[in-house]
């Protein structure tokens, strides 16, 4: 669906925004691009949108070359920008109507599709709200509505859930999966979101991909420890037990974060604690994707 091959962008002032990027998104995939600010994600997105000419390399979307046919993406690619753009004096329903009107929809068909879209993104109660009345999170949902109302086969999402509340985040992902898009590129800083929804992840730093694969493989790329987080009824006893066992741990109030070199050790320690102390909260991450990403980004920066 999307094929990027050996993409390089060098600006006239010599700044190299990305170098030798290769990325594929197959049918049915949600592919995440993670990286710190300035890693080159925006440049990559602008290249995918046909707004920046690559210095070298190739971008094909739905089999068509984006560099030589930049307008091909109109109506075929849906895009949610990072900036929470709004139309201050247009209602939410009018914004969606505008996009659908450009597609040629009229009358009852248009109204029906507007309501479908608003329901999908969870804005049906805000159909009559003006842009200036929306929170940033809601503005982002309108942008998502603008993208998916066109039924594009490809979606490019630049932090689609930033500033969106927890309840609506689920709605956003429901809308994305129900939109009928056959390929999704997600640029995000939200590791949890990436882990939960992406089939594959590209890790970007300094304009290059430094790792690629399913989230669990990315996490396994580093020899990172397993982290057990617990909250117990009797924190004092837990601390005594951990000190006695010689475990590496950190305590923040009643929350204990214990680090083990291997998963099996974490499980046996958890079992030991549970035998004598009631636990109120348990979280086990083995290995932690977030830590793996941090580690890989650090290594990527050093290189």
């Amino acid at each position: 669906m999307i094929e990027v091959a050996d993409l390089t962008k060098e600006y006239p002032n010599g700044t190299r925004a990305n170098a030798g990027l290769s990325l594929t998104v197959n049918e049915g995939e949600i592919v995440g691009v993670i990286g710190p600010n300035g890693a080159g994600k925006t440049t990559l997105i602008r290249q995918l949108l046909g707004l920046l000419k690559p210095t070298s390399g190739r971008i094909r979307i739905l089999g068509c070359d984006v560099v030589s046919h930049p307008h091909m993406i109109k109506g075929r690619v849906g895009y949610v920008p990072q900036a929470p753009l709004t139309y201050p004096s247009l209602t939410v329903a009018e914004v969606i109507s505008f996009v659908l009107g450009l597609k040629g929809l009229r009358g009852a068909g248009l109204r029906e599709r507007v309501m479908e879209t608003l329901t999908l993104v969870g804005l049906e109660q805000s159909a009559g709200s003006f842009g200036y009345q929306l929170s940033r999170g809601m503005a982002r949902l309108v942008l998502l509505g603008m993208a998916i109302c066109q039924n594009p086969p490809v979606l490019i999402l630049d932090e689609p859930t930033a500033m969106v509340d927890i309840e609506r985040k689920e709605r956003v992902w429901h809308a994305i999966t129900a939109s009928g898009a056959r390929a999704v590129v997600l640029a995000s800083h939200d590791i949890h979101e990436v882990r939960e929804h992406c089939t594959r992840v590209y890790l970007m730093v300094g304009g290059k991909f430094i790792a690629e694969g399913p989230p669990h493989e990315i996490a396994a790329l580093t020899r990172l420890s397993t982290v057990l987080t617990i909250v117990a009824d009797d924190s004092q006893r837990v601390e005594e037990l951990l000190v006695e066992s010689g475990d590496m741990f950190r305590r923040k109030g009643d929350v204990f974060e214990i680090v083990f070199p291997e998963l099996v050790m974490a499980l046996s320690r958890l079992e030991l604690i549970r035998q004598g102390i009631a636990l109120r909260y348990v979280h086990l991450e083995a290995p932690s994707l977030e830590r793996a990403v941090k580690q890989l980004l650090l290594e990527g920066r050093v290189q």
Partner: peptide, 13 residues
């Protein structure tokens, strides 16, 4: 730039 990005995918030049 942000607006150009948004309109790049809308069906109007």
């Amino acid at each position: 730039p942000e607006v150009l990005e948004l309109y790049a995918v809308l069906p109007a030049r």
